Amino acid sequence: MKFGYMSVSKVDLNSAQKKQLEDFGCDRIFLENINSSRRNRPELNRLIEFLREGDTVVVTDLTRLSRSTKDLMAVIERISQKGAHLKSLKESWIDTNSDDGKILLTYLANITQFESELTTLQNKEVVQAANRIKKKRKEILSSISRLSTSQQKQIIGHLDELITISYDMLFRN
Protein backbone atom coordinates (compact mmCIF):
# COMPACT_ATOMS: atom_id res chain seq x y z
CA MET A 1 0.00 0.00 0.00
CA LYS A 2 1.02 3.62 -0.52
CA PHE A 3 0.77 5.94 2.45
CA GLY A 4 1.15 9.67 2.02
CA TYR A 5 2.64 11.84 4.73
CA MET A 6 1.98 15.57 4.92
CA SER A 7 3.51 18.00 7.38
CA VAL A 8 1.99 21.44 7.15
CA SER A 9 2.16 24.51 9.35
CA LYS A 10 -0.28 26.51 7.21
CA VAL A 11 -3.69 25.42 5.95
CA ASP A 12 -3.10 26.79 2.42
CA LEU A 13 -0.21 24.32 1.89
CA ASN A 14 -2.49 21.46 2.88
CA SER A 15 -4.56 21.22 -0.30
CA ALA A 16 -1.64 21.25 -2.77
CA GLN A 17 0.20 18.46 -0.96
CA LYS A 18 -2.96 16.42 -0.53
CA LYS A 19 -3.78 16.64 -4.23
CA GLN A 20 -0.26 15.53 -5.23
CA LEU A 21 -0.42 12.55 -2.89
CA GLU A 22 -3.91 11.59 -4.05
CA ASP A 23 -2.84 11.91 -7.71
CA PHE A 24 0.09 9.58 -6.99
CA GLY A 25 -2.39 6.99 -5.74
CA CYS A 26 -1.87 7.03 -1.98
CA ASP A 27 -4.33 4.74 -0.19
CA ARG A 28 -4.22 6.75 3.02
CA ILE A 29 -2.75 10.12 3.95
CA PHE A 30 -1.38 11.03 7.38
CA LEU A 31 -1.54 14.77 8.12
CA GLU A 32 0.80 16.44 10.63
CA ASN A 33 -0.21 19.98 11.57
CA ILE A 34 3.15 20.91 13.03
CA ASN A 35 6.51 21.99 11.70
CA SER A 36 8.62 19.10 10.35
CA SER A 37 11.64 20.31 12.33
CA ARG A 38 10.00 19.15 15.57
CA ARG A 39 11.21 15.86 16.97
CA ASN A 40 7.88 14.65 18.31
CA ARG A 41 5.57 14.08 15.35
CA PRO A 42 2.66 11.88 16.46
CA GLU A 43 1.24 11.30 12.96
CA LEU A 44 4.62 10.25 11.57
CA ASN A 45 5.04 7.87 14.50
CA ARG A 46 1.54 6.49 13.88
CA LEU A 47 2.29 6.06 10.16
CA ILE A 48 5.49 4.15 10.87
CA GLU A 49 3.70 1.89 13.36
CA PHE A 50 1.02 1.25 10.72
CA LEU A 51 3.53 0.18 8.02
CA ARG A 52 3.87 -3.39 6.83
CA GLU A 53 6.49 -5.03 4.65
CA GLY A 54 6.31 -3.81 1.05
CA ASP A 55 4.44 -0.58 1.88
CA THR A 56 5.64 2.76 0.54
CA VAL A 57 5.69 6.09 2.36
CA VAL A 58 5.21 8.93 -0.12
CA VAL A 59 6.07 12.58 0.56
CA THR A 60 5.76 15.50 -1.83
CA ASP A 61 9.09 16.95 -0.70
CA LEU A 62 11.77 15.76 1.74
CA THR A 63 11.38 18.98 3.72
CA ARG A 64 7.89 17.76 4.61
CA LEU A 65 9.47 14.73 6.27
CA SER A 66 12.48 16.32 7.94
CA ARG A 67 14.50 19.53 8.08
CA SER A 68 17.86 17.93 8.89
CA THR A 69 19.81 15.22 7.14
CA LYS A 70 20.49 13.42 10.41
CA ASP A 71 16.79 13.27 11.29
CA LEU A 72 15.89 12.27 7.73
CA MET A 73 18.27 9.33 7.88
CA ALA A 74 16.78 8.26 11.23
CA VAL A 75 13.24 8.40 9.80
CA ILE A 76 14.28 6.43 6.70
CA GLU A 77 15.91 3.82 8.94
CA ARG A 78 12.67 3.46 10.92
CA ILE A 79 10.71 3.02 7.68
CA SER A 80 13.24 0.45 6.39
CA GLN A 81 13.09 -1.52 9.63
CA LYS A 82 9.41 -2.10 8.90
CA GLY A 83 10.30 -3.48 5.46
CA ALA A 84 8.74 -0.43 3.82
CA HIS A 85 10.14 2.08 1.33
CA LEU A 86 10.27 5.87 0.93
CA LYS A 87 9.38 7.80 -2.22
CA SER A 88 9.72 11.58 -2.63
CA LEU A 89 7.77 13.15 -5.48
CA LYS A 90 9.98 16.24 -5.74
CA GLU A 91 13.32 14.47 -5.26
CA SER A 92 12.57 11.59 -7.61
CA TRP A 93 15.97 10.02 -6.88
CA ILE A 94 14.73 9.27 -3.35
CA ASP A 95 13.02 5.94 -3.89
CA THR A 96 14.30 3.27 -1.55
CA ASN A 97 12.48 0.64 -3.62
CA SER A 98 14.95 1.08 -6.51
CA ASP A 99 18.62 0.13 -6.66
CA ASP A 100 19.59 3.65 -7.79
CA GLY A 101 17.64 5.18 -4.91
CA LYS A 102 19.33 2.87 -2.40
CA ILE A 103 22.79 3.74 -3.76
CA LEU A 104 22.09 7.48 -3.65
CA LEU A 105 20.72 7.13 -0.15
CA THR A 106 23.90 5.32 0.89
CA TYR A 107 25.93 8.28 -0.41
CA LEU A 108 23.66 10.64 1.48
CA ALA A 109 24.11 8.57 4.66
CA ASN A 110 27.91 8.67 4.25
CA ILE A 111 27.87 12.42 3.77
CA THR A 112 25.68 12.76 6.86
CA GLN A 113 28.07 10.67 8.92
CA PHE A 114 31.01 12.72 7.62
CA GLU A 115 29.22 15.97 8.54
CA SER A 116 28.51 14.63 12.01
CA GLU A 117 32.12 13.55 12.57
CA LEU A 118 33.41 16.87 11.24
CA THR A 119 31.12 18.78 13.60
CA THR A 120 32.27 16.64 16.53
CA LEU A 121 35.91 17.24 15.61
CA GLN A 122 35.34 20.99 15.29
CA ASN A 123 33.58 21.05 18.66
CA LYS A 124 36.50 19.21 20.28
CA GLU A 125 38.97 21.68 18.74
CA VAL A 126 36.94 24.63 20.05
CA VAL A 127 36.84 23.11 23.56
CA GLN A 128 40.60 22.44 23.45
CA ALA A 129 41.29 26.02 22.34
CA ALA A 130 39.06 27.38 25.10
CA ASN A 131 40.88 25.23 27.67
CA ARG A 132 44.26 26.52 26.42
CA ILE A 133 43.02 30.10 26.72
CA LYS A 134 41.69 29.41 30.21
CA LYS A 135 45.04 27.92 31.25
CA LYS A 136 46.97 30.90 29.83
CA ARG A 137 44.55 33.27 31.58
CA LYS A 138 45.30 31.57 34.91
CA GLU A 139 49.03 31.78 34.27
CA ILE A 140 48.76 35.48 33.42
CA LEU A 141 46.61 36.17 36.48
CA SER A 142 49.04 34.32 38.71
CA SER A 143 51.97 36.39 37.39
CA ILE A 144 50.12 39.69 37.49
CA SER A 145 48.68 39.13 40.97
CA ARG A 146 52.20 39.31 42.43
CA LEU A 147 52.56 42.90 41.20
CA SER A 148 51.26 46.07 42.81
CA THR A 149 47.88 47.44 41.70
CA SER A 150 49.45 50.30 39.73
CA GLN A 151 51.79 47.87 37.94
CA GLN A 152 48.81 45.58 37.21
CA LYS A 153 46.84 48.44 35.67
CA GLN A 154 49.85 49.48 33.59
CA ILE A 155 50.30 45.95 32.22
CA ILE A 156 46.57 45.63 31.56
CA GLY A 157 46.70 48.96 29.74
CA HIS A 158 49.40 47.60 27.43
CA LEU A 159 47.48 44.35 26.97
CA ASP A 160 44.36 46.34 26.20
CA GLU A 161 46.15 48.07 23.34
CA LEU A 162 47.31 44.73 21.97
CA ILE A 163 44.29 42.50 22.45
CA THR A 164 41.45 44.78 23.57
CA ILE A 165 40.97 43.38 27.04
CA SER A 166 40.00 45.40 30.08
CA TYR A 167 41.21 45.12 33.67
CA ASP A 168 37.74 43.97 34.81
CA MET A 169 37.51 41.36 32.06
CA LEU A 170 40.88 39.82 32.89
CA PHE A 171 40.17 39.67 36.63
CA ARG A 172 36.55 38.52 36.44
CA ASN A 173 35.63 35.36 38.29
Score class of each variant (00 low, 15 high):
residue 4 G to A: 00
residue 5 Y to I: 01
residue 7 S to M: 05
residue 10 K to V: 12
residue 19 K to C: 13
residue 25 G to A: 11
residue 29 I to A: 09
residue 30 F to A: 02
residue 30 F to W: 06
residue 33 N to A: 06
residue 35 N to Y: 06
residue 40 N to D: 15
residue 40 N to A: 13
residue 44 L to C: 01
residue 44 L to G: 02
residue 45 N to T: 00
residue 45 N to H: 01
residue 46 R to L: 12
residue 48 I to D: 02
residue 49 E to W: 05
residue 60 T to K: 14
residue 60 T to R: 12
residue 60 T to Q: 07
residue 61 D to S: 11
residue 64 R to Q: 10
residue 67 R to Q: 14
residue 71 D to W: 09
residue 73 M to Y: 10
residue 73 M to C: 07
residue 74 A to H: 04
residue 77 E to Y: 09
residue 77 E to R: 12
residue 77 E to F: 04
residue 78 R to G: 10
residue 82 K to V: 13
residue 85 H to S: 06
residue 87 K to G: 02
residue 87 K to C: 05
residue 89 L to M: 15
residue 90 K to E: 15
residue 91 E to A: 05
residue 92 S to A: 08
residue 94 I to C: 11
residue 95 D to H: 11
residue 99 D to Y: 07
residue 102 K to R: 14
residue 105 L to G: 10
residue 105 L to M: 12
residue 106 T to S: 12
residue 112 T to L: 02
residue 114 F to H: 01
residue 117 E to A: 02
residue 118 L to H: 01
residue 121 L to M: 12
residue 121 L to W: 10
residue 124 K to E: 06
residue 125 E to R: 01
residue 126 V to N: 13
residue 127 V to M: 08
residue 130 A to V: 00
residue 136 K to N: 06
residue 141 L to D: 01
residue 143 S to H: 08
residue 146 R to T: 15
residue 147 L to P: 01
residue 148 S to W: 06
residue 149 T to K: 13
residue 150 S to A: 08
residue 151 Q to M: 08
residue 151 Q to K: 12
residue 154 Q to P: 04
residue 154 Q to K: 14
residue 155 I to W: 05
residue 156 I to N: 09
residue 160 D to P: 03
residue 162 L to M: 12
residue 163 I to G: 10
residue 165 I to P: 11
residue 166 S to M: 10
residue 167 Y to M: 13
residue 169 M to L: 06
residue 170 L to K: 05
